[in-house]
Simulated scan of single mutants.
Amino acid sequence: MKRIALCALLAALAGPALAQFSDEQNRAYGVILPMLEELTPDAPVLSACVVTVAAPQEIAALAASGGPSMEAGQLVSAVLARPETLSCIQNTMAQR
């Protein structure tokens, strides 16, 4: 049930392309979202873009982390700094 709600939220906030996550991507999203919620009300969009841009090994590491941590935060920060992630955020926010 939570996955359905998550996908619906992502579809509403970030467009259909970002809502099509695998189980592993959904687990990674679940790790990323609480960390970014502490920083911004746009955390769902930022989290979706991080999941969309992150490499498969980065998604696997986040999904396996079990929750927010210093290592997960460093990985999220690195992905957020990428031009592709910034572009995803800008494009998604423009669609709102």
Rank of each mutant, 00 (worst) to 15 (best):
V79F: 01
V76M: 13
V76W: 09
R82D: 01
G66Q: 05
V76T: 13
G73K: 04
L80W: 06
V53S: 03
E71R: 15
A60L: 07
L80P: 01
A54W: 02
G67C: 06
S69T: 02
M70L: 11
E84Q: 10
L86F: 11
M70I: 11
A63R: 07
S69I: 03
R82I: 00
R82C: 00
P56T: 08
S65N: 07
A78C: 04
M70E: 12
V76A: 13
S77L: 07
G73R: 06
V76C: 12
P83M: 15
A60N: 00
A81R: 13
M70T: 08
A63S: 10
L62H: 02
S77K: 08
Q57N: 03
S77Q: 13
I59F: 01
Q57Y: 12
V51N: 02
V53K: 03
V51R: 04
A61L: 06
A61S: 13
P56S: 09
A64I: 01
R82H: 02
P68L: 00
E84L: 04
L75M: 12
V79M: 01
A72N: 10
L86V: 11
E71Q: 15
L86G: 12
A60F: 06
L86E: 14
E71W: 10
A54V: 03
P56V: 07
C49D: 05
S87F: 08
L62A: 05
T52M: 09
Q74C: 11
V76Y: 08
Q74K: 13
I59Y: 00
G66N: 05
S87C: 07
P83R: 15
T85K: 10
L62C: 04
G73C: 09
G67N: 06
Q74N: 14
A81E: 13
G73Q: 09
Q74E: 14
A64S: 13
L80Q: 11
P56D: 11
S65G: 10
Q57K: 10
P83V: 15
E84M: 05
G67V: 04
P56G: 02
S65C: 10
G67H: 04
A55V: 12
T85M: 09
I59T: 11
S87Q: 14
E58H: 05
L80Y: 08
A81Q: 15
L75G: 02
Q57L: 12
A60D: 11
A61I: 05
A72V: 09
G66T: 07
V53G: 00
T52R: 15
T52A: 14
V79L: 02
E71G: 02
Q74G: 14
L75I: 04
A61T: 14
A81K: 14
R82T: 09
G67W: 03
A55F: 11
T85Q: 11
M70P: 01
V76E: 10
S65H: 10
V51C: 12
R82G: 01
S65Q: 12
A63E: 06
A55N: 08
S87T: 14
V50E: 01
Q57C: 01
L80I: 11
G73S: 08
P83K: 15
A60Y: 04
A81H: 13
A78Y: 00
L62N: 02
A72M: 07
A54N: 04
P83C: 13
A55Q: 14
S69N: 00
S69Y: 00
A64K: 08
A63D: 06
C49H: 08
A72C: 12
I59H: 00
V76F: 14
M70Q: 12
A54K: 03
A64V: 07
E58R: 06
